[in-house]
Simulated assay, not measured.
Amino acid sequence: MNCKIITVSDSRTADTDYSGQLMKELLLKNGHIVTAYELVTDEKTDIVQAFHSGCIDPKIDAILLNGGTGLAKRDVTIESIQPLLHKEMVGFGEIFRMLSYTEDIGSAAILSRAIAGVYNDTAVYCTPGSVGAVKLAMEKLIIPELGHVISEIRKNL
């Protein structure tokens, strides 16, 4: 699958974007292609612009965003992306929080607002920006199902 990675952060640079780098590494390791990467600030307009540039590219099958999913006032990834989704995969967020609770962070999992869904023919994933959260989401949920998700999205086209 051809993927675009978007890191949402006010403080990271391309050199310090360890979560975006991990996403790229895991995608490549599992036979996927990273066709685009962007690092944007926690601003709705920047997030939506980066998202739409990926959605209009017919070569991109999935957009993976990391960062900006918390409860702080500057965390606006969910507010930027969720209203744009045509379908939401609610199970992604539910299972991500369950795995976070049992395998990693305990009750702090309730702070996660990770979501996934579909925009037109593009799979969309929004994960927290920590390396641990990205690793968990990628290894347990995104990588194992990415091909299946894209296949379902494109069924009957």
Rank of each mutant, 00 (worst) to 15 (best):
A109D: 14
I142R: 09
A133E: 07
I56C: 06
D10Y: 10
V131G: 01
S130T: 14
L71P: 03
S19F: 08
D42L: 09
T122G: 00
T77R: 08
I110W: 12
V90A: 10
H148F: 05
N2T: 12
L99R: 10
Y119G: 03
D121L: 12
A72L: 07
T41I: 05
Y119F: 15
A114V: 12
D75E: 09
N120L: 15
V131M: 01
F96L: 14
L71I: 11
I153H: 08
D15P: 05
L64G: 10
V48F: 01
S130I: 06
T13Y: 02
N66T: 15
T35I: 11
K140C: 03
M98S: 14
A116Y: 10
N30F: 05
Y119K: 14
L111Q: 14
K44D: 11
H86S: 10
G91H: 02
V40W: 06
E43V: 07
R154E: 13
G67A: 00
A62M: 08
R12G: 04
A62N: 02
D61G: 03
E43N: 03
I150L: 02
V40Y: 00
T13R: 04
R113Y: 09
I115A: 05
D57E: 14
P58Q: 02
I60D: 05
T122L: 06
T35N: 07
I81Y: 12
D104V: 10
D15V: 12
K59T: 15
L84T: 07
T41D: 11
V76L: 04
E43K: 14
E79S: 14
N2C: 04
V131L: 08
Y101K: 15
R74F: 01
E103R: 11
S80W: 05
L26I: 14
K73Q: 11
T7Y: 03
I110Q: 13
Y37E: 13
A14D: 12
T122P: 00
H148A: 02
I78W: 01
H32P: 02
M98C: 13
A116E: 11
A72I: 01
G68F: 05
L85C: 01
F92D: 03
I6Q: 10
L141S: 11
G147S: 03
G70T: 08
I105E: 01
L64W: 00
I153D: 13
Y101Q: 14
V131E: 10
Q21E: 12
R12E: 05
I105Q: 08
P58L: 01
K24G: 04
P58G: 08
S9Y: 06
I47P: 04
I153A: 13
E152T: 04
E152Q: 14
R12S: 04
I5V: 13
G31T: 02
M23Q: 15
G147H: 01
T45R: 13
Y18T: 13
D61C: 06
R97N: 11
